Amino acid sequence: MLKISTFSLVLMSVMALFFSSSVFAQLTMPQPSPSAMVKQTVGLTDITIDYSSPAMRQREVWGGLVPYGEIWRTGANKATNITFSDEVSIKGTKIPAGTYALFTIPNEKEWTVIINKNSEQWGAGQYDEKEDVVRFMVTPMISPIIHERMMFTIEAMEDKQGEVSLWWSNTRISFVVDADPVATMISNIENTLEKANNIWYTYAQSAEYYMDNKQDTNKAMEWINKSISLKDHYYNNWIKARLMMTGNKTGGVSSNTQGAIDLAKKAMEMGEKENTNFYKRLKPEMEQFIKTYSQQLPKNVDTKKK
């Protein structure tokens, strides 16, 4: 029978401990191009960019580290990904909701920006032009400050547009993503109203959205009348007053002018009784509405008439 000395057993135990601990004691070091992410909601759409951020490290970036005229992953490591939670459009091209690779071809005077279907690429080695969703040109701009690390920003310019910018070294490129929420919102409204259980505020909000976004005014009037029948409130009366004047942006007289003024006055009387912060924010607009349209009425019309 094989005999193992006590010393051998101790040595084997020490060696086993050393090798096992070396496996689990790996040092975590800073990454040359750490991962980064930026996300911005534009209207109802989330735009997310997931990328790795390389640094200059005293190297010449454009035309050096990043060659001109060649496809670039627009970052480091895995190809940069851009995700849209809803359908958007860029330069007039509709892009379905989903995740895409964001490639660029830098040049001194003009860059090509590419949105590509294959979001699982490492670098640009598997890039296939046939999978491009859209290609468009942008003009590089001089950045007001030098950026040591490459970074992306997304600015929500308004409810319908977001500006995506890439910054690195002394250069910035930008493009606009159109994320018009109206179509999505219309679908949300109609689905919500089916389950609204006669909630007056939901009908009022829906009517106001349709009015503000130039949708079906007849449907909006139907909803605001439903809202008022459920609860007579300053908010829905104010919406109806404005809705009655839809399409009359110049302040001219129409057959609805007197009725709209009366409704606005009624809304103010009701609002003064509640005196909420919400009403206080609406009050200046109500006052201006009454003043504008009252001035356009014939002088023999009694604007105090109910």
Rank of each mutant, 00 (worst) to 15 (best):
K3W: 12
I4T: 02
S5V: 06
L17T: 14
F18V: 12
S20R: 05
S20E: 01
S21L: 15
V23P: 00
Q26Y: 04
T28C: 00
Q31L: 12
V38K: 02
Q40T: 15
L44E: 12
D46Y: 05
D46R: 07
I49T: 06
P54V: 13
M56V: 15
M56P: 08
M56A: 11
R59V: 13
G63C: 10
G64A: 14
V66Y: 02
P67D: 04
I71D: 02
W72A: 04
S85Q: 06
K94Q: 14
I95S: 07
A97L: 14
F103N: 01
I105V: 15
E108N: 12
E108L: 15
I114F: 10
K117I: 11
K117D: 13
A124T: 00
V133T: 04
R135S: 09
R135T: 11
R135A: 06
M137H: 03
M137C: 04
T139N: 10
I145G: 01
E155G: 06
E155D: 15
Q161F: 08
G162D: 04
V164A: 01
N170Y: 02
N170C: 03
T171R: 15
D178N: 10
A179T: 07
D180Q: 04
T184C: 03
M185K: 10
L193G: 03
I199H: 09
Q205D: 10
Y210W: 13
K214N: 14
Q215C: 11
D216Y: 13
K219D: 11
H233A: 14
H233S: 15
N236T: 12
L243W: 01
G247K: 07
N248D: 04
G252M: 09
S254M: 09
Q258Y: 05
A260D: 11
E269Y: 08
M270V: 07
E272C: 09
N277A: 08
Y279M: 13
I290C: 13
S294G: 04
T303M: 10
